[in-house]
């Protein structure tokens, strides 16, 4: 029984992790059709911002929820202004440029902070379930992820900005004709996406530590989740996370984490073989 509870927890945790690391990417890809290869590095920078702010004496929660999103959002703004804005509409070129950016950020962080793992200890202690104990912080992580997803759904469908953003995403030309400044919408979207990735990195910092190359560990999974999710912005990647997460969690539990990750990729390839435009083409009609 206890083992079952733990296994359920692992599954939910894995879904939440996938959702958390792909939310920022989903916002940027879904809205702007920009494949942001520097996504993993935004996560990494978020983690670094938290750890460094915390070591400098800032309260952990403050550095997680305020400092990291702000720092990464700022970096995102600069990157958008200097690189992404010049390349809108050129999917492949943007991808390469952001790849360059990703290498650049890895190099810069390595040069500044060195190639070592920094960390902060996970707050909130443990919860005991029978013979097992799990970190309360992980439960907190799941709750925050759920909150983030709900917030972004609400923001997209119930706010004026969400309406404008969805309009710009569906038909940029028409939105521009109606007086929407699309460049500005894109810039804001990119910054929000970057800030979300920064927050994800900040939340992950206590459990994984930070390292210049840590982005690579997340970026593949985030991409696979977002791309097999397909066109629908939030529901797409959420459903993909729900399909992929359990497989990864269960196989990691019964075999090894490497098998879990490999099977996640394999499953994504199979999903894309069946639904070339992602799972969400089931209910958006292959848009």
């Amino acid at each position: 029984m206890d083992q079952f509870v733990i296994l359920c927890f692992a599954v939910v945790n894995s879904i939440a992790l996938l959702a958390l690391i792909s939310l920022g990417l989903a916002v940027i890809f879904g809205m702007m059709r920009v494949i942001n290869f520097a996504h993993g590095e935004f996560i990494m920078l978020g983690g670094y911002a938290t750890v460094i702010a915390n070591h400098a004496g800032v309260n952990l929660w403050l550095s997680m929820f305020v400092v990291s999103p702000m720092v990464v959002g700022l970096i995102g703004a600069v990157a958008e202004r200097l690189i992404i804005r010049r390349l809108y509409g050129h999917l492949v070129t943007t991808m390469l440029a952001t790849w360059g950016l990703s290498l650049f950020l890895i190099g810069a962080v390595t040069a500044i902070f060195g190639n070592t793992t920094l960390g902060v200890s996970a707050p909130l202690g443990n919860i005991t379930i029978g013979a097992y104990s799990i970190g309360a912080y992980q439960l907190f992580l799941i709750a925050v992820t759920a909150l983030l997803v709900v917030c972004s759904l609400l923001a997209l469908h119930w706010t004026k900005y969400g309406l404008i953003a969805r309009a710009a995403m569906q038909n940029a030309e028409m939105a521009a004709t109606l007086g929407v400044d699309c460049d500005r919408v894109y810039a804001t979207t990119f910054i929000i996406g970057a800030a979300t990735s920064g927050l994800a990195g900040a939340l992950l910092a206590p459990i994984s530590g930070v390292l210049p190359h840590m982005g690579a560990a997340y970026v593949a999974r985030a991409f696979v989740t977002v791309i097999s999710g397909g066109g629908a912005l939030i529901t797409g990647f959420l459903s993909a996370a729900t399909i992929l997460g359990p497989v990864e969690a269960l196989l990691s539990y019964f075999a090894t984490p490497v098998v879990g990750q490999a099977s996640l990729l394999l499953l994504a390839v199979i999903i894309l073989r069946l639904f070339p435009t992602g799972v969400s083409s089931l209910w958006t009609g292959g848009r």
Binding site: R86, L103, L105, I106
Partner: peptide, 20 residues
């Protein structure tokens, strides 16, 4: 002296922007 990744990353970005 320099970090290889830093240089490579900057080079890719510059090439994409200046000499696509």
């Amino acid at each position: 002296v320099f970090n290889t990744e830093l240089i490579f990353g900057a080079t890719i970005v510059l090439f994409v922007l200046l000499a696509p």
